[in-house]
Amino acid sequence: MTELSLIPDEVAARVGTEAARATGEVNRRDWQRWAVAVGDENPLWFDAEHARAHGYDDVICPPLYLQYAVLGVTPMSALRADGSSGAASGNLQFPDAPKRMAGGESTTFHLPAYHRDELTMVRVIDSIVEKHGRSGRFVLVTWRTTYTNQRDELVAEATTSMIARP
């Protein structure tokens, strides 16, 4: 007996296409709030004089914060049943695998981002595969993401994955 795929055909057909595109302004107060939340009070994020002494024009955005700068606000009514937002993932639907968890994240950083930089995130679906793990079947989705600034300079590139389970 062949099990039915957890990946709907119309979702499988989206591999290689753009899943999401978003633009957002890098905001100093927001990244500082994030830095405090992770306990990273490095003066490069907070102290302009310190940042200038290290060769920057001003305080810089913590690299791991970049993705949050472009994520918009998801209205409550648009959240999925589990309460998470599908905005950045292109709202891929897996009706037979509705439980989602982040899989992994790997980023290469090319340039610093400053307050009021305008970042554009373009996220392309790299692969969608079904796997069998110790805890059963799951779907692994991988995206490739680029972040460019208002001068079309590549700020960072990331590979992100997500796991969806039945």
Binding site: L44, W45, P63, E105, S106, F109
Partner: peptide, 9 residues
């Protein structure tokens, strides 16, 4: 803090 070029897991 600005020395990280590539980072992931």
């Amino acid at each position: 803090a600005d020395r990280i070029v590539e980072f992931g897991a």
